[in-house]
Design a protein around this nucleic acid. Structure first.
Lengths: 218, 218, 218, 218
DNA sequence: AATGAATGAGCTTTCATTCAT
DNA sequence: GATGAATGAAAGCTCATTCAT
């Protein structure tokens, strides 16, 4: 398990000691749930296990989250928010579209490396557990992840950086695919590559393809 | 549910009526299990549901498969075999490496479109359920999916078709990622693209990248 | 499995070929059921197993016996009848009571050795399976096993052979206990004794006890 | 159901109220399981029934015992331990071998009368249910019940109390048989005898046999 | 606030019995 | 007569959730 900070929902100065302590425990629970979830998937993680890992009783979990589902939804909300923060910060920088996309890919890989595998977690939850997705889908449109990338790619086309003949929607889908790729690599490979190395190659292929450069370009 | 043929295990002429009927039902079960599995994942599919969907009783399932796990393993074996058959057939054709890769991608997308989403199925099974993977892993090495692609990409590098500076392992991982991509698209998008259209774009990007061609190339 | 004749319910000459063949199969089923029952007990023997051992289908079993319970009841009836026949034959012989008891013990042990462990089978059936015992208890009084022995022991007391101060009921119970003893021995010991050797010792103890004979008797 | 004390695992003063309450319930479960087991045998006792008899839900059973098998093993361990304690205490007394054997028989009968029918319980478990016996057999050798009796009978032979011409192994088997006898009596007879009366007669027969004493002895 | 005992619905699996062929 | 596919009623076990303490 890797160490990673969990964003406080409130600035700690505005809270009493008790409240802060409570938040801290909530964070611990989310952390434990996260790890177990990645490892086993939604159905195979028991509330007991999460409680045990945090060192509290099962009953106490329910003082922090109304249900297993609520716990997971909160976890995903949090990771989505975190991810969006990252994306927005990069997207608003003054750089070429390509540079920003490359940066996003690299930072995504770094996040995955540090355990913020929210994209992977999504898969691990298992097919539906219907209500979870229902709940999240009501919130995700608000986040408009797809919209942000659509605008970025459109900007790239406009500026002449990107091939305007390729549908934007496919570009977005493809980019999402490449973002997930590293998570898979981490799980599958015994000696996973570092984010930087992986991102370098993927970025190169993304913009220039696998084809060997023509002789004149050498 | 999409229509798709299920490979008979025996030529139908060599079997009695009863036997053929039995095989037909086995196929129906596999089909139903497949659909439910994709939709909900291993843990969230109850044997009851599969039985109900086929229109038989729960007990009858166990006349065809010794356990839930056996049912799923059989399903995966079948889909893996199907997929490998496709891959091998294409790989052995007399074409450039690039042409073969493009073909594989196209046919994979077609398969996905027809419901042979084995790659997706793999994910849908859910985190661990250890034994399934243990059983399959004893068989998968024999199939050596990765090995085949590694050799194909190596051949491409040797022939000068592919960029020799890109590590083969990453090429393989990237290609797998793109194969899965379409499955995701099918699940996510309300108006999914046709395999041909999707493959055309992905292949283009894969070999030339997203970057707009240089002015001289216009 | 040991070979042993099964008493035909009808003289074979009075039956058609078909009928005789049917009886033969019934006997085979009883035999198989007997063996399995001894080995595993009532609840752990599946109708499938019995059918498989006879080499017929499960459905066919039900052409011979209305239910699993009926099968077992019949088996027990048969073994009880067999056992009673043996007892009666010995009891009616012109011998001292002691000689007859010794003979019964010996022949019981021989029967156990040959697999007619009905007494043991009784236990193996498992506590109740209620209806079985209910059914048998309606028939056993008619057989009056206890009554026969009670009369025999009483005769022994009268004739001065047996100690009249010992209650007959306890003598009977004790004798039953010793009859079962050999069955236990067969199951427990890795190198079980032969019926003759075992009977010799048990008979000796039964009538003279374990105490060393007084010096004058040596 | 008969009243009988269940050995506390811990002195009650060393436990909190909760813990004691828990132990009490565990004891209740064991008690109920014991009774059902004797009455119906292992396979015919459902966890539901035990739970119902205790007045708790099925799930609660599993808070006390990991499985049905574990419950039964525990029950047997407990009764074996109890029985062995009794045996050892008597065997170490300064008495003739005969007196000690008589005492053991009497106390065994008393135990049976009070419901500690472990020997009977053993039989009632039913044919195999392999694992239970496997587990216990790993522990029983340590208890070495047979060994203890073998030594005691050998001592009796040496001292001249017992007939040295009778094989010790058979003496032991016979003695076990007589120990079980009373349990059977309790189950079978409508008006079972008291342990003392029964033991008196059995002991008499065991050492002097059924034969009427010779005239000179009168 | 925290606990953990208790619950009960739900899951996989088995098997005696039935019945169309 | 014989078959074996089909059934459905349990059984053992798990786990999210509740609640008295």
């Amino acid at each position: 398990m890797t160490t990673r900070p969990v964003a406080d929902r409130q600035a700690s100065t505005t809270m009493s000691f008790k409240a802060r302590q409570r938040e801290a425990r909530t964070a611990l629970i989310l952390q434990a749930a996260h790890d177990e979830l990645i490892a086993k998937g939604y159905r195979d993680v028991a509330m007991d296990e999460i409680a045990a890992q945090v060192g509290i009783s099962k009953g106490t979990l329910y003082l922090h989250f109304a249900s297993k589902e609520a716990l997971v939804v909160r976890l995903l909300e949090q990771e989505i928010a975190q991810f969006l923060g990252l994306i927005d910060q990069i997207m608003s920088q003054e750089m070429t579209v390509r540079a920003r996309l490359e940066r996003i890919l690299l930072e995504t890989y770094r996040g995955i490396r540090n355990g913020q595998q929210f994209l992977l977690a999504l898969r691990s939850i298992g097919g539906n557990k219907g209500d979870i997705w229902d709940r999240l889908e009501k919130q995700l449109p608000a986040t408009e992840l797809t919209g942000r990338f659509t605008r970025l790619f459109a900007e790239g086309k406009q500026s002449g950086e990107l091939d305007a003949t390729i549908p934007t929607a496919i570009m977005v889908a493809l980019f999402f695919s490449l973002m997930q790729m590293y998570a898979e690599q981490q799980l599958t490979e015994s000696q996973p590559l570092l984010p930087e190395a992986f991102a370098a190659v993927v970025n190169r292929v993304l913009f220039q393809g696998l084809a060997a450069p023509p002789p004149s370009a050498r």
